[in-house]
Amino acid sequence: MNLTLKVWRQKDSDSKGKMETYVVSDIPEEASFLEMLDIVNNQLIESGGDPITFDHDCREGICGSCSLTINGVPHGKGKGITTCQLHMRKFSDGETIYIEPFRAKPFPILKDLMVDRSSFDRVIESGGYVSVRTGSAVDANSMPIEKDDADTAFDAATCIGCGACVASCKNASAMLFVSAKVKHLNSLPQGAPEKTKRVVNMVNQMDKEGFGNCTNQYECEAVCPKSIKAEFISDLNRQYGTAIVKDAIS
């Protein structure tokens, strides 16, 4: 495959970046998107150029490291996949592909396509602990959990914290991410004792990190590689409202 790549290049977080054009040839159709970038980088290194910096780790869609906004879509076109699961056969020969970093103020660009997503780590940290019995090992299945609740919690827990929701949102809102984390722990009896505190602290931290406000456009839901549902955002709104009322009257 022959491709024209328009890639965002930025020296460091303080520099101004710009799009640069690379004409690449002989890319195998079966290569993944990241493997295509590996090939381009090898060519750049061989010719004495500066390779394109991008995040990646597991390359099997479970770690949440890879990012990239491809032709305006975080993780590229394709339902429920991360960039590492995107293959070149989805593109046509001769196509021009725009590759940009995940854009959001709380995700500052470190270099080229690599952004700092530690704001997500701080939101998770603010969620605090879950109370568990320590000491001797607990019997498996000693705490019955209804199947529906377990399924919902698991659906929410599939969030890999990649940040595509923030990147796709025109307001850089992190509501889908925060709602998934809150839903995960607050749906289970293990997370119940800290339920109220957790939702308030996580929303406060989300605001403190400078994420924007949700305007109910559901772009996040469309790009989420784990198909987290915007229904959880509605639930987060309810849980937060309830927590504030509880706090005011108690």
Binding site: K6, G72, N171, A172, F211, G212, T215
Partner: peptide, 29 residues
């Protein structure tokens, strides 16, 4: 106030703009 905050949060805009499912009404509120 929300719009001002949102503009500030987004920072830079994408060179390649794409909309997945946001309705026309929601984008022009």
């Amino acid at each position: 106030m929300l719009v001002i905050q949102n503009r500030r949060s987004k920072g830079s805009r994408y060179v390649y703009q794409h909309t997945n499912k946001a309705s026309g009404a929601s984008r022009t509120m």
